[in-house]
Design a protein around this nucleic acid. Structure first.
Lengths: 223, 223, 223, 223
DNA sequence: AATGAATGAGGATTCATTCAT
DNA sequence: TATGAATGAATCCTCATTCAT
């Protein structure tokens, strides 16, 4: 039997430890292949103990995502605050780089709506969504500042970045069997380098969103 | 027993019929909830018969996706060819609209790398990838024409569109339980209208990619 | 792989075979200890195959009960029809004897409402109840004839017999550990011989129900 | 932390309190659905504390049953002693009424042999059985008096009453889904009103057991 | 070519019970 | 005496796939 987490701090620490193990496990194995039994063993805990901390497998990995996401938002914040202005390109590069450095986050994000949101308690789901909104709001404002975007476009850009991450990730990281196929010359067109393509896409997106500032302010967005 | 498909045309027709039923079935039920048994029944065939035409569940739905994708590329082609030029906005609107009209395609696309590519025969996978490359190449050239993009940017744009579709779809169509949550005022920021947001994103993306033509041609893309 | 039951008769036969195995298995092990895996093995079938014939564990054992019950009703019918009249005692003895000879039925009956009726499809439940009603009606009429009971009292008596069976069975067949305890002299009062006590109880019940015929017809039952 | 029960009286009081809560909890939820965790919470105690007072879940509910049973025997005793004689009917009505007023007892009784006796310490089991014997003996004598039964028939009648209670309860209180089914007209035959049918059955049983006094004393019971 | 009965691996989850503090 | 975190056994059911006819 593992030592008991008796005090609230100890419990929080164990929760964190589980999440860290989960994040690590995802680097070795896909979510679907990862069983709670395996995870429990990796944690040095009994299966049932996992369920003391998380209601379902989905909640556990949602929490993992939440943790990664929060860290990423925070890191990105500090990163962006180093300079007080950013070009579309430097912003895009920074974002793409920070994401490429977080494989777990990028792996989990496409699962959010496909898998993770399917078996959650209402409280958990609500908590996650609120956290997301808060980060999006705060992050959005920061982005608006460094990129000189109009109000609302910061959060909008982050949402689009999210979409690009999810979509590009799937293009860039196919299952092994497919990856083998793509090495053929004839299919070179379909090979995607996640970080590079994300940077390029984001740069274009930012450029497209800031264009009106200098050129034709007519293309007003409807909300 | 269903009538036997003896001649090659009859076989091809039955194959098509299965795909049509599969596409329809996806409108009622998610891929994961859809069983081969249910699909067989909807087709008026026995389970085993499905396996005469498709090697695995994944191959069947990959073929469905292939069909939807081909149709979409074709439709989009005709659509775009109506006028010989497009603004970023009119292009974006056209694309977004044509996709919003194809829920099955949009449902299947996010599954491509998460699910569909996981259990394929090599021949099937290769066939799909080649078809994709061809469509991407042809479609890319067309896009380059109507948007006056540089060579290579057509396919690139289509890839980014793909990414946006996948990513935005997940934001826009959460599971019912989550959808309920998002109706709260406090979470309005997280609500996404697929067609509208896709149009806006694409417009910005196109704008960002064409900008250099008029402004600073310095931002050369690396491939 | 076991031979396939291709024709309806073969399927019905396999269904029967499963039920027979289930009935036999109950003689070795209690319902709660009996797993579907074990039962499948005893049948020489795969677990999944059981679920081809029965929707849930409960449905399977309800069907077992149904079969035992139908057989019992039929046997009792022939038994009773041998003579055209019965005294309370001869009736009671006959019934008690026929039940004591059917341990599976007697084991299953107390589970009906406690366990079996808890996880049934509506169709299954309805089918069982209808069968019960039919047998009760027909059996009731027969009982009314041989015992010269008033209309309605036949089914009523059978219901009471059912209740006595369930209740006495629990007194008569405690778990092994308790059975050991009851062997003590001081607890002799609590020992119950199922067949004998059932016969005595039934005899008294029948006597009580027929009494008015000869004595005071005043005690009319309300329905 | 709940206050500590240091003195023996305090311990006994807490034990009683737990049993009272358990009895109450059974009115809201079936035994099988009732978890020790839920019960502990309802008691305002920790799960482990329950195990300080009772060795197993079964022992706890056996004690609950014991308590209900003792109370019932006592109440019935006073009830019966009000008049010094009883007709079969008035006795039956009294008994049925007193039982119908004790839903917890009636719920627990059918579980006695099915569930409760399965996981007991020997001492607990023995204690329960002795208590049962004592109550049965004393109650039996009382019953013999008020009904003018022969020696031994008092306890015998109580045993049969027990059997009828268990059996009729199961007929009268099916799970909700089944209860819904029984509301159909076609199944009216299978509907049982617990109190009424128990009274009728008991009346008949008593009548049958007393008959010989006036009519044919030949039907001697074997023990 | 069509059938559909048989397969059987596969996994999340519950909960009575223990025991270190 | 009280706690409650940790345990881990225990089991039903699903469903893609196969293959004998």
């Amino acid at each position: 039997m593992s030592v008991r987490a008796r005090k609230p701090e100890a419990k929080a620490a164990r929760r964190e430890a589980i999440l860290a193990v989960a994040a690590g496990a995802l680097r070795r194995r896909e979510y679907a292949q990862l069983t709670m039994a395996e995870l429990a063993e990796a944690c040095g805990l009994a299966k049932g103990t996992l369920y003391l901390y998380f209601g379902t497998k989905e909640e556990l990995f949602l929490a993992t995502l939440e943790r990664e996401l929060a860290q990423w938002f925070d890191d990105l914040g500090s990163e962006l605050l180093r300079g007080d202005r950013h070009s579309a390109r430097s912003f895009a590069t920074t974002v793409a780089h920070s994401l490429a450095a977080r494989p777990t986050l990028v792996e989990l994000l496409p699962l959010l709506h496909t898998v993770l949101e399917h078996n959650l308690g209402e409280a958990t789901a609500l908590g996650f969504k609120r956290m997301l909104r808060d980060k999006l709001l705060a992050g959005g404002r920061l982005v608006e500042t460094v990129l000189q975007l109009r109000e609302g476009d910061g959060a909008r850009l982050l949402l689009r970045a999210h979409a690009l991450v999810v979509g590009l990730r799937q293009l860039a990281d196919p299952p092994p069997q497919i990856r083998g196929l793509l090495e053929r010359d004839e299919l070179s067109l379909l090979r995607v380098d996640f970080e590079h393509e994300l940077a390029e896409s984001l740069a274009a997106m930012v450029a497209g969103m800031t264009r009106h500032l200098r050129a034709a302010p007519s293309a007003s967005d409807r909300t």
